[in-house]
């Protein structure tokens, strides 16, 4: 769109304003996670405190204040309600408006230590990573195989069957959840990681779709040439299609990892013992048992969020391409 400078300026102003609104919750999370308990709950009318600060005090625990550009010690109020300040050994009285309480930045990392005391972080992290990696491997393997069948081999009824794959994508998960729970319970799988992991090896429609779209774009001549050379179908899959599809495979792995990292419903329904909990489930349990420990709660939320944000920044291009690939080119 051709844009006049005045629109550009307007757009900039709007984008900056919107960005600040979108970033504010993140900043608030990190800020709260580093605040001392006493600073988390604000006084009425006080604006939100973004940078964790505490009042400066001297060795006797008295507030340090700035009075007439000098540092003084606040010794408290006298009987008329005025403050007594110690200014280099001489005492003066001042009203509350005449001085400013000195503050310093103080980061309270003990919120993180407290959070790690309440939940068994190493164990929950290990569980999460185990489930994430297994599910990623299962998904990439199964979905690429199935997508290969729907894009690189001609067979009767292929397109009709593919519509069936797309249709399953529209099924709400809750519709399958109860019978799946009963099935896994009868198999003795509830309370283990199996209900989270095994389905990944059976393919996920969304990623079958994504990979099929990508495989379709690879020239069929490559397969034809390999077939003439006597290469088996599996050989073509493993040695030609897979190496050429690294970007799509990376997108699949990335999306699946992020989904699994944050998944809540499956761990909630299928896991029983808190020693098996994933980080997402552990955070929810933590919240339900210690609702007002906002410092440690925000610390834990930060800990769960930072890895995915880092991952996102490292893989941003793969990410946006993947979304638009699946979203539009259907």
């Amino acid at each position: 769109m051709a844009t006049r400078p005045v629109y550009r300026l307007f757009a900039h102003a709007m984008l900056i304003a919107a960005s600040l609104l979108f970033l504010a919750p993140f900043a608030w999370m990190v800020s709260t996670s580093l605040k001392h308990e006493s600073r988390i709950f604000s006084k009425p009318g006080e604006p939100p405190q973004w940078i964790p600060r505490t009042d400066r005090i001297d060795a006797n625990g008295n507030q340090l204040v700035t009075y007439q550009d000098q540092t003084a010690v606040n010794l408290g109020r006298n009987e008329d309600g005025r403050y007594i300040l110690d200014l280099d050994g001489s005492q003066v009285s001042a009203s509350g408006e005449e001085f400013v309480v000195q503050q310093e930045i103080e980061l309270h990392w003990e919120n993180y230590a407290e959070a790690f005391r309440i939940i068994d972080f190493p164990r929950n992290l290990r569980n999460t990573l185990f489930v994430c990696f297994t599910v990623v491997i299962g998904t990439v393997l199964s979905c690429s195989l199935v997508a290969y069948s729907f894009s690189r081999i001609e067979w009767p009824g292929r397109d009709l069957c593919f519509i069936l794959v797309l249709a399953t994508m529209m099924l709400p998960y809750q519709v399958m959840l109860i019978p799946l729970f009963v099935l896994y319970k009868n198999l003795g799988w509830t309370g283990t990681f199996k209900p989270l992991i095994v389905p990944a090896f059976l393919g996920t429609p969304f990623y079958i779709f994504l990979l099929r779209q990508f495989f379709m774009g690879i020239p069929q001549d490559l397969s034809a040439a390999a077939r003439i050379d006597g290469c088996s179908e599996f050989g073509i899959y493993a040695r030609i299609i897979m190496p050429l599809s690294k970007p799509a495979l990376a997108t699949t792995a990335l999306f699946m990892f992020l989904f699994q990292w944050g998944d809540f419903l499956n761990p909630l329904v299928f896991l029983q013992d808190d020693r098996q909990y994933t980080l997402a489930l552990a955070l929810q349990q933590f919240q339900s048992q210690h609702e007002s420990l906002w410092g440690p709660l925000m610390a834990m939320s930060t800990v769960i969020t930072v890895p995915v944000i880092l991952l996102f920044f490292l893989t941003q291009r793969t990410f946006i391409q993947g979304i638009t690939l699946t979203g539009l080119k259907g």
């Binding site: 980080l279 939320s301 944000i309």
Partner: peptide, 10 residues
């Protein structure tokens, strides 16, 4: 991309 549990607690 923030895990929904984390964004909900936030």
């Amino acid at each position: 991309i923030v895990p929904i549990v984390a964004s909900s607690v936030l």
